[in-house]
Structures are given as C-alpha cells and as structure tokens.
Computed example of a mutant assay.
Amino acid sequence: MSIKEDHNRFKDIVKGKVKEDFKKYVTQGEMIGKRENDFVKIPLPHIEIPNFRYGPKQQGGVGQGQGQPGEGVGEPGDGQGQAGENPGEHLLEVELSMDELADILGEKLELPRIEPKGNKNIEMEKTRYSGMAPVGPEGLRNFKSSYKKALKRYVSSGIYNPEDPVIVPIRRDFQYRSFKKVTKPMAKAVVIYMMDVSGSMGDEQKEIVRLESFWINTWLKKHYKGLETRFIIHDAAAKEVDEDTFFRTSESGGTLISSAYKLCQQIIETDYPVNEWNIYPFHFSDGDNWSGEDTRLCTKLLKEFFLPKTNVFCYGQVESKYGSGQFLKDLQKEFGTDERIICSQIESRDKILDSIKDFLGKGK
C-alpha cells in the first residue's frame, strides 16, 4: 500500500472521528481557534499513533556511543508528584480543509446543495493537480520525482556508484503530474451578521453566535468562490465593526433593532448590487426590542427591502434570562410560513446544530 493510500485512509479515520463527536466540536468550539488560512487544526484524542516496536520489554538492545559492558544506562530521576495509575492520552492535532469540514457538516445535517439565485449561477472548470502518475504529456513530466524513481532503481539493483553518481532515468522512471477537472461555482456571496450587544446579551450568548457563524460560513464557502463577511453591532444605535470587535463588544442601554436593519440596507445598496451578489443577512438578538413601533418599522424594512432583494433573511433568537423574546413572536405572527425569512430559537449551545439546520436546510 502506498504512502498516499495510507494518508487517505488516515484522513478517512479522522473525518469519521470528527463526525462521531461532531456535536462536541460544534458546541465547544475546539477547532475554531486553530484556523490557519483554509485549514483547521483539530485536537483528536484516543487515536493510537503508529510506532515501531523493537522487541519485548525489559530486554537489551544494540546501542551506540561510549560505555562498558554491564554499565547502567541511567539512574531514576527525582521528579515530583505521585505516579498515576491510568495510561496517558495521546493528543494528536490533524488538519482538515474547510471543504472537508463542510462535507462533514452537510452529511451530518443532511443539508441540500445551495443553488445561487438569478444569473449569478455561473460555474467555471478549473484544473486541480492531484498527484503523480506513470504516464502523461511531456509538458507535465516532473524532473524531481522521475530522478528519485531512477535513483531508487539504481540503489535497489546495486548499480549505483557513489564515486560516479550518474543517474540516467529510463521510460519506466518517468513521473508526470496528474490532474483532474473540477467545477467551481463563480457566484459571489456576502454574509452580513448583525448582533444585539445590549446588556442582556452576555458572553455566553455571544459565544453561541460565534460558534454558529463559523459553521454557517464554512457551509456557504463551499458553494461560493468568493464569500465576504460584514459585521454590525447594535444597541439603540448601530455601527459596522471588524470580526473581533463583533464578538467582544458589550454595551448597555436600550435596543433599537431597526438601527441595524437600516445600516445593513445601506451597506447592501452601496457595495452589493442585488443582481450580482447572493446576500445573506443574519440577525442575532435576545428578542427584547425597545418598542412595538420599532418592531413595526423592522417588519416594514423586511417586506419592502430585505425579502425581495436577498436570498433569505435569517433571524436567530438567543435565549437570555434578561430578554423578553418578543421579537421572534412578532416576526412569526407577521410572516407566518413565508420561506424568504427563517426564524430559529437558540436556547443553548446544544441547539446550535438544530439552528444551523433551520437556516441552511432549505438550500437557498
């Protein structure tokens, strides 16, 4: 079995382990803090690491260096602490791409493929180099791999001469870069996150939003070549911020949800023409709006601007012991079963997966 096959088999084991413990990774966010470009490092315990064994324990072996027969190889150290009775746990960090995480999310939640709306549903065929092959066009012959293959043949057959290290590859040594054609969506998309940061939205509520937004982005990136994200925070007033500020800001005072919706509308009208972009506004709040009048203004904005011009408008209500939760009830009463707006109640971290399914399960 080749090293490549072993590696692929190990990746399958890793993905199976992530899928098995998927809820833990979603609710605890173990991998979100370990992002590097398009990859995520995942700490995986309980996977035995392959190792060489050189014979039965407590038996001698061949050593190197200075020493006399019968001489001890070392004295016990004087470390501190009690000896443990349980075996140590291997903690292995492995990398998975965002595409692989999206596949796991899609399989776990049975999410449908998103079909970009309108005339933006354009796909482009690209060439992806995927390894080496013994045949191929001369323009793709890889010198380094071909040389290494020839060197192995020389060494294994005993004809390699270190004094005259001339290596002449023959036809069977040649290695060519292999490739496959992949189709990638060209459509552009923007996700605009809005969050209530008034005093009733505490650290736990913001952490739920952080975890959920990571997985929402992971799924959407699989379907769009270019995914942009924008962030709006609001209490009685709204402002655009960067991602770090979005999840760390705490304010006090009243809540005017319409302030965020107005700013979101302004951003869309300025930067994202609706005939060129797939637009996903997400609003997270504990549902405690300042007044019924402001809620009526929000529903007016939704009817006249957001629902006709965006792929889908998503509202997630994070439960807080200080919030009334009334805004969710008002939206459900006003819009009923209108599929252009999706409402989800997120009572705790354990409900994050259900909420993601609510938002993304219709493939819009």
Rank of each mutant, 00 (worst) to 15 (best):
H234R: 03
Q266A: 13
A189S: 02
G287A: 11
T218R: 00
V241F: 10
T245P: 04
M201G: 01
S320Q: 01
A236D: 13
H283L: 15
L220Q: 02
S252N: 14
L227W: 01
I232A: 05
V241D: 09
E251A: 11
K222H: 05
Q317R: 14
W215K: 00
S250D: 13
Y272H: 13
K300T: 14
T245Y: 11
D271C: 09
K221Q: 11
F305G: 08
G199M: 01
E228V: 09
G316H: 10
D294G: 04
Q266H: 15
C314V: 13
I208W: 07
I232T: 06
Q266M: 14
V190R: 00
E319A: 09
C264S: 09
K222T: 01
D294M: 07
V318P: 09
V318H: 09
W290A: 12
C298I: 10
K300F: 14
T218K: 00
E243W: 07
D203H: 11
K221N: 08
L263D: 06
S213Q: 04
G254Q: 02
T295E: 14
L301M: 15
E293G: 12
L256W: 05
G253D: 04
V191E: 00
K309D: 08
P281Y: 12
K300R: 13
F247L: 03
D244W: 15
K222E: 02
R248C: 05
Q317K: 11
N289W: 11
G253I: 05
Y261K: 01
